[in-house]
């Protein structure tokens, strides 16, 4: 039982597990809609946009932690921009996301390059790959508040969001505010991604959104069960991944995603 109790006796591991469970569950819940709308690529796009926002914060001389508050509006604006281009119907979702994704990332590189040389060095690796084990109590409260607020909005709009995801035209005819929900989903995804970047980093965050939802989608026969299954998968995958990270002494972002990936493969085999 030592393998179970030893990590839990460490305060940093407990904080990481609480944070991972919140972020994992939230990413998975929102991922259900992202996956069902065929927008999996948007997770990647917004994660790279978040990098632009964090870099802008660093250019404005705020700490890496405080840069999250700059990244939040920056990424939300990018997500709404993608939504606007999508709704205008001039470009496909992948094209719109691809353009915003690369421009935002390039802006991030530019912002970091423009920082005066006397500023402290930035640990780019922790932004790219996350540092959940370094989560402090203050961070945990911020993640908790953002996750709680996002979860409340998601629960309050779930039935309408599900209908609009199934078929926007039919939902609109039933009085569902499809356009407003589209923008809301993009903005929520942006918020969740910015919060999650601290956990698994920019490179892996889209997997946190896509894999649990895709796994649950393989097994569930209703959207309600798919959502519940994805949330459980996100929470369990994050927790098991952290245990693996502790015992193998490797980066936690990678072990979390690999655990989720293993779950997906098992579901795929079970489905066949």
């Amino acid at each position: 039982m030592d393998w179970l109790t030893e990590p839990l006796s460490q305060a940093f591991m407990v904080r990481a597990m609480v944070c991972g469970a919140m972020v994992g569950g939230l990413c998975a819940a929102i991922g259900v809609f992202v996956v069902q709308r065929g927008m999996s690529f948007i997770g990647d796009g917004l994660a790279h946009a978040a990098f632009g926002g964090i870099a802008l914060g660093l250019l404005l001389d705020v700490s890496t932690n405080a840069a999250t508050w700059v990244a939040l509006p920056f990424t939300v604006v990018v997500s709404l921009g993608i939504g606007w281009v999508l709704r205008s119907g001039r470009l496909g979702g992948d094209v719109a996301t691809g353009v915003f994704f690369s421009v935002s990332f390039a802006l991030g590189v530019l912002f970091i390059g423009l920082r005066p040389p006397d500023r402290p060095m930035v640990n780019i690796e922790s932004i790219l790959f996350g540092s959940i084990l370094a989560i402090g109590e203050e961070d945990l409260i911020v993640v908790g508040i953002v996750a709680g607020a996002t979860a409340l909005v998601l629960i309050g709009t779930w039935t309408r969001l599900a209908y609009a995801t199934f078929d926007p035209a039919l939902a609109k005819l039933s009085g569902v505010p499809v356009a407003a929900l589209d923008y809301m989903l993009l903005a929520l995804t942006a918020v969740v991604i910015v919060v999650s970047v601290k956990t698994v980093g920019i490179v892996l965050v889209s997997s946190f959104i896509v894999i649990p939802a895709a796994t649950a989608g393989l097994l569930a026969r209703s959207l309600t069960r798919m959502t519940l299954g994805a949330v459980v998968m996100g929470v369990v995958g994050s927790t098991l991944g952290l245990f693996a990270s502790y015992h193998l002494n490797v980066a936690s972002g990678a072990t979390i995603i690999l655990t989720l990936g293993a779950g997906f493969i098992i579901a795929l085999v079970a489905k066949r």
Binding site: W158, A162, Y163, F166, D167, G217, S222, L223, M226
Partner: peptide, 22 residues
């Protein structure tokens, strides 16, 4: 237009129109 993997049952689809939400 629904996504090919959308997990919906017949009665859910019909009830959604009745209720105006999923």
């Amino acid at each position: 237009h629904f996504h090919a993997s959308f997990p919906a049952r017949v009665e859910e689809l019909v009830a959604a129109n009745l209720r105006g939400t999923w």
